[in-house]
Simulated scan of single mutants.
Amino acid sequence: MDVDLTAQPHLGVLTPYLNYTLTARNTGPATLTSATLTATLPVGASATNLATGCTSATTTVTCVFGSIAADASASKTFRIHPDHMACGPRRGPDPPAGGQPSFAVRPFSGLFSSVVA
């Protein structure tokens, strides 16, 4: 099983957010009967707009996927608002000229805490 995570920003003036998509792809020769993905959220964050089959606890989002045929995939989504992400000065030495800015957004640290298939 392959697992992907993508983030798509929604830059609305009143309610900006990041829409995350968890995708489970069955790379095996047989149908996968179920899969559970658990994502660890940043400190102080909470997830909203959870897809059917996903639940949120204090520090995690857990999504349960049903049957996935061989060479097929299934996706689940959730949102996090920017005010829930860790933002601040970049740590470490200054980048070389033309390099990374000195301010960075660090939305997640080790997103997947577990994958069960």
Score class of each variant (00 low, 15 high):
11 L>W: 00
39 A>E: 03
54 C>V: 07
50 L>V: 07
15 T>A: 12
14 L>S: 15
69 A>P: 04
70 A>S: 12
3 V>A: 15
35 A>W: 01
30 A>L: 13
11 L>K: 01
54 C>R: 06
73 S>K: 08
91 R>G: 13
72 A>P: 00
79 R>I: 10
73 S>M: 09
7 A>G: 11
40 T>G: 05
5 L>T: 02
66 G>S: 11
17 Y>K: 08
76 K>D: 06
59 T>F: 04
55 T>C: 05
8 Q>V: 15
90 R>H: 02
88 G>S: 08
82 P>C: 10
24 A>R: 09
26 N>G: 03
28 G>M: 05
76 K>G: 07
86 A>I: 13
19 N>D: 13
73 S>G: 11
76 K>I: 12
29 P>M: 11
62 T>V: 11
36 T>L: 12
82 P>A: 07
16 P>N: 04
14 L>V: 14
21 T>C: 00
92 G>R: 05
37 L>S: 09
11 L>A: 14
70 A>F: 07
84 H>P: 00
10 H>V: 14
79 R>V: 13
40 T>D: 07
56 S>L: 10
76 K>W: 14
54 C>W: 10
36 T>R: 10
19 N>L: 10
3 V>K: 09
63 C>R: 05
37 L>A: 12
64 V>M: 07
59 T>A: 11
60 T>W: 00
46 S>A: 14
52 T>H: 00
59 T>M: 04
77 T>V: 08
64 V>T: 15
51 A>M: 03
